Amino acid sequence: MTIRLHYVHDPLCGWCYAAAPLVAAAMAQPDVELVLHGGGLFPQPMQLPAAKRAYIREADARIAQMTGQVFGPAYLDGLLPDPAFTLYSLPPIAAILAAEELRAGAGPEMLKAIQSAHYVEGRRVIEAEVLVAIASGLGLDGGAFASALPRQPVEAHLVDTRQLMTRFGLGGFPGFVRERAGEWRVVPHGVFYGQPAAFVESLRAG
């Protein structure tokens, strides 16, 4: 019986990066279908004060310890401390939607690639040319992707995501909801950071 795993995420959310191994483990299962719902953690371009960047650095260190996820020097020593560092969720969410439009199933690939570009390589993933380069690295046609990027219905997508979050009482990112045989339930995930196999087991429970 197929499990549809609805994943409420944001490409620039550190705890979503922490959950990436859980998502990868779920996607490796032949009976699990992943459905992405971008949430817009940073709906407007935001430059962070030094105190907020220090807070993020502490959270990133905790994530690395809990999950083994890599935060590269280009991010930790280059992008994060830069006063001009800007967070803006809409461009990378548009990129995920554009990737899915061009190739079915490419949305999760694009999310993973954006997270790696941001947290490992320290690239500015809110910039269109960077997103085009990432898409090209996934084998998507760069020109077609560049054309698809600005026409994505990001605002409508965010509204749908927020409605899903309200329906199931999800207060932030990440969030997981299992749909199976017409029944829906929230899947707790916080206890499974660093335990992908246990997370997969939890999808099939109940």
Rank of each mutant, 00 (worst) to 15 (best):
G175E: 05
L138F: 05
M1P: 13
S116T: 11
G190L: 12
M110K: 05
E129M: 04
R162G: 13
L138M: 03
G105W: 05
A74T: 10
G142Q: 02
A104I: 11
A144W: 03
L170K: 07
F192A: 05
S202N: 14
S147T: 15
P108Y: 03
G39A: 10
Q65A: 12
T86C: 11
G105L: 14
T161W: 02
G107C: 08
C13F: 07
V186K: 11
R167N: 12
F192W: 04
A26M: 02
R178P: 08
L149G: 01
L90R: 15
Y119E: 02
T2C: 05
V32K: 09
R185P: 06
V177H: 02
L97Q: 13
H189C: 06
L34W: 05
V70M: 12
C13M: 07
P174H: 05
A198V: 10
A61R: 12
A98Q: 13
F173R: 06
P108I: 04
L36S: 06
V200E: 00
R151P: 05
L12P: 01
L97R: 15
E155F: 12
A74M: 09
A50P: 06
M27D: 06
A128R: 13
L131F: 01
V120G: 13
Q195I: 10
P43C: 03
V154K: 05
F145A: 03
D82S: 12
G39N: 07
R204K: 08
F176G: 02
S89Y: 14
R53A: 09
A98N: 14
L138I: 03
L149E: 00
A104W: 15
H189A: 00
F85H: 14
M46G: 08
I63Q: 01
V23G: 10
A28N: 07
A156V: 11
H37P: 10
F168T: 08
A106S: 13
R185C: 06
L41R: 11
V125Q: 04
P188E: 12
I126L: 14
Q163L: 11
F85I: 10
R62S: 07
F199L: 09
A20W: 09
E58R: 15
V132W: 03
H189T: 01
S116G: 15
A18R: 02
F173A: 04
I96T: 15
A135L: 00
A26P: 01
A25I: 00
G107F: 05
P150G: 13
E33I: 14
I126H: 12
E127F: 01
D31G: 07
A99T: 08
